[in-house]
């Protein structure tokens, strides 16, 4: 069945839902297609302490529940499901979701970014068997066990702090000799007695695929090239995110680093297609900047539609 809409928003993180809020208040009856990772990255966080207006912080999933309800209150429609394909070759744009086809006069891409894996092959095979990209999801299984966290940014530090309360030992493996994370987080991590650092090291192997569980990791010293094997029960990967652009590759211009290129606010290389949030932001990547860019995309889409006679 084909459904015709004025504005379709793909993604339901802070960018997508803020775009939905603004577009619905502009009487554009937006449709949000949630995607498989509905609610976005904040759904996997605990306390968010830097969302303006909440001096004591707010839980990430609670914030997304509120944002969703706020968008619905003004008439946005939200459907579950993952977009299978998009055709931007002519307007209206066409999207396929399961057995349904949607057309949109304007499209807002807010597909966000997903956790990056090590790309060793074995890390994917052992996903759910001791390799994870989400400490708040899977830390439970490592009570009293030894775990590693790979990465040196704020996400890695947050994961290490969370895991230090559950695991007996946390080994933080970082490619460089210093952390990239914020000073506040660094101080918190360094004060915890059961977090140990391995500097200038890369994970080059994880055992044991045959057993179907994690038993050890192989580390390579980035300075000497020497490799060592370290027994471990779980590995949490926090080495950043990759923008979710698969649906529009070859159809909108991307930057060299894979993010969608935007100009004059949220415009992409295709008139009528706008982008917001982490899929186009490789610099700030904050919930509040994502929400701000979602607002921009909705306003840009509204002006685009009014300029083309809608």
């Amino acid at each position: 069945m084909t459904h015709a809409r004025q504005v379709i928003i793909i993604g339901s993180g802070p960018a997508g839902l803020t775009a939905a809020l603004y577009a619905s208040r502009a009487n554009l009856s937006p449709l949000v297609i949630e995607g498989i990772e509905a609610g976005g990255q904040l759904m996997l966080t605990t306390m968010v302490e830097n969302w303006p207006g909440f001096r004591d912080g707010i839980m990430g999933p609670d914030l997304m529940t509120e944002l969703r309800a706020q968008a619905l209150r003004f008439g946005a429609e939200i459907v579950q499901g993952d977009v299978a394909s998009i055709d931007l070759s002519e307007r209206p744009f066409r999207l396929r979701v399961g057995d349904d086809t949607y057309t949109a006069d304007a499209l807002i891409l807010a597909t966000g970014a997903s956790a990056r894996w090590l790309e060793l092959g074995v890390d994917r095979q052992l996903s759910g068997r001791g390799v994870s990209t989400c400490a708040t999801c899977d830390g439970f299984f490592f009570r009293g066990r030894r775990v590693a966290v790979v990465g040196g940014g704020d996400t890695a530090l947050e994961e290490a702090i969370y895991l230090s309360k559950l695991a007996s030992d946390v080994v933080l493996v970082h490619r460089r000799a210093e952390l990239r994370g914020s000073k506040v987080m660094q101080d918190k991590v360094k004060a915890l007695p059961n977090i140990r650092f391995v500097w200038n090291a890369e994970v080059v192997g994880i055992n044991d695929v045959a057993k179907g569980e994690v038993t050890s990791m192989v580390l390579r010293d980035t300075l000497s090239g020497a490799t060592t094997e370290e027994p471990i029960d779980g590995i949490f990967i926090a080495i950043g995110h990759t923008p979710n652009t698969r649906l529009v590759q070859g159809q909108v211009d991307l930057l060299d680093n894979g993010y969608i290129r935007t100009h004059h606010g949220s415009r992409t290389s295709v008139p009528g297609v706008f982008a917001a949030g982490d899929v186009q932001d490789h610099v700030y990547r904050q919930a509040v900047t994502a929400a701000g860019s979602g607002c921009m995309a909705a306003i840009d889409a509204e002006r685009f539609l009014s300029g083309t006679g809608h």
Partner: peptide, 24 residues
């Protein structure tokens, strides 16, 4: 040996025939 959730296990006559880890 489940170390992450959500995990879906599909059993056929008592044997695991498929495993899906994470969202689907």
């Amino acid at each position: 040996m489940i170390r992450g959730i959500p995990t879906l296990l599909l059993f056929k006559d008592g044997k695991v025939v498929d495993t899906i880890v994470g969202l689907v």
